[in-house]
Amino acid sequence: MSIVPGLWGVRVFGRGLGRFVLAGLCFAGLMLIAKGAWIPAKAAVAQLLLERAFDRSLAAHAPVKAWGWADTAPVARISVPRLGRRQIVLGGGSGEAMAFGPTLLPAGAEAGEDGTTIIAAHRDTHFAFLGELRVGDAIDVEAVSGKRRRYRVARMAVVRWDGFNVQRHPARATLALASCWPLGAQARGPLRYVVWAVEG
C-alpha cells in the first residue's frame, strides 16, 4: 500500500515519456518500411521509363537517357520468352545504375557482340528470376545498335566474387548473368550465382 503513492509521480512522468518513445518507434518503423518499399518501387518504375527510352534509343541507334539527370543510358534489352520477362540493361556497371536495372559490366563484351557479355543485377529485384531459369531456356538480347542475338542457357555456377573467370574469345558468343548467391538470402556474402548461356 505505502509504496504505491511514492511511485505514482514516477509512473505518470514515465507514461508520458513512454508514449513519446513508443510513438517514435512506430515512426521509425514506418520510415524503414517506406525506405525498404521504395527500392522495388524505384526498380519497377525505372524499368517503365527505361523501356520508353530504349525504344527511342533503338530509333536513334544511340543510347538516349531515360530522364534528364540519369547518369547512365540503356544499352540493351534482355528477354526470357518462357518466363515472359523483359528488362532494360544499363551501361556502366555502377552500383547506382543497378538500382534502376541490370547493368552491363565493362570488363565483358558489349551487348550482342562476339565474346563474353556479362550482365549483373540485384538478386531481389531485377534478377530475382535467375532462379527460375532452366538449362535450354532462350534469352534474347537486343542491343541499341539494333543487333539481336538469341542465347541458350548452358549451365549455372556458384562462384566467389573474385573467383570468376571468363574466356576473352570464346568459340561462340557467350552471355553471363550474375547475381548474389544465395538468391533468397538477406545477408551479404562472397558468393555469386552465374547463369551461362551460349549463342545458338
Partner: peptide, 20 residues
C-alpha cells in the same frame, strides 16, 4: 582467360521492410 570481379548485388530491401 581473364578474371572479372562480380559486384555486390543485393539491395536487402525485404530485410529493411522486415526490420521496420
Amino acid at each position: 582467360v581473364e578474371q572479372v570481379e562480380l559486384p555486390e548485388t543485393a539491395t536487402g530491401f525485404l530485410g529493411t521492410i522486415g526490420q521496420g
